[in-house]
């Protein structure tokens, strides 16, 4: 059984069909990439999975249970967490506070617990602070825990977004263009980091434009264009798929046609 499965999902905004009958499967422990030209509907797919949009038709299941129709916060609790294409950190809060907010769903002490600083409050806070420091150190933010999120350089802000998603205790991480704006060295590091996440037992669904990252890190790739699935398979298959080349570069025969 797939960990995450989209079955014939249709997402319509008025007359515009942003996701058109898309089916997709992510098995546990896989790194799956979702690629496609700009405006193909990749981020919309993430928004449907995480419950930001309510899908028009179809079904989305996580761990065999239907999650489409649930509220975003309920979906996070089931174990699906995401990052954003345009970074959405809590800029005026500290790095560690950002990480702790990510772990919000793992705390359940009440207001009286907080007011009287009960044992429940102290143990939960201590455990999650420890976990936050651990996660931040593992992602290379160890020396920035006291810093304010908006003061971090771009690459580190992306990492903090991932750290925040991890803190929720999610099983699957949806990463929306994590390598955007990174230099080659940074994206190289990112690849290593994504692999290490998989080794730790996370399943990853990745949206990415950096083909170097996509081809090197993915187990399988789904290609969408105009909301429709146009190809799926292993990186080597995708590289040579004529449909994919057409979607990205246009129809080769059209350009070459006159000369040929």
């Amino acid at each position: 059984m797939a960990l995450l499965e989209m079955k014939q999902v249709l997402m319509r905004f008025g007359g515009l069909v942003a996701v058109d009958g898309l089916s997709l499967k992510v098995e546990e422990g896989e790194i799956v990439s979702l690629i496609g030209p700009n405006g193909a509907g990749k981020t919309t797919v993430f928004n449907t999975i995480t419950g930001v949009y309510e899908i028009t038709e179809g079904e989305i299941c996580f761990g065999g249970e239907r999650i489409s129709g649930l509220l975003p916060r309920e979906i996070v609790k089931r174990g699906v967490s995401r990052t954003f294409q345009n970074i959405r950190l809590f800029g005026k809060l500290r790095v560690i506070e950002n990480a702790l907010i990510g772990a919000h769903i793992n705390m359940d002490y009440s207001i009286p617990d907080a007011l009287f600083r009960t044992k429940k409050y102290r143990t939960q806070e201590l455990t999650l602070h420890k976990k936050a420091l651990e996660v931040l150190a593992s992602i290379g933010l160890g020396e920035y825990v006291h810093e304010y999120a908006e003061n971090l350089p771009y690459g580190l802000q992306r990492r903090l977004e991932i750290a925040r998603a991890i803190m929720s205790g999610a099983k699957i991480l949806l990463l929306d263009e994590p390598a955007a704006g990174m230099n080659p060295q940074e994206s190289e590091d990112l690849m290593g980091f994504i692999r290490s996440l998989r080794d730790k037992g996370y399943t990853i669904l990745l949206i990415e434009h950096d083909m170097n990252v996509v081809m090197n890190v993915s187990d399988r790739i789904y290609v969408v264009d105009y909301g429709k699935l146009i190809a799926k398979g292993k990186p080597e298959q995708i590289k040579n798929d004529p449909g994919v080349i057409r979607a990205y570069l246009g129809d080769v025969s059209e350009i070459m046609g006159e000369g040929a």
């Binding site: 916060r73 967490s81 954003f84 959405r88 950190l89 005026k92 907010i101």
Partner: peptide, 19 residues
């Protein structure tokens, strides 16, 4: 922390599981 998260970015707060 949750209140401050809502202030800073309501959508990101929701996505962190905050009501």
């Amino acid at each position: 922390r949750a209140m401050k998260a809502v202030r800073e970015d309501p959508l990101a707060a929701t996505m962190a599981g905050i009501n």
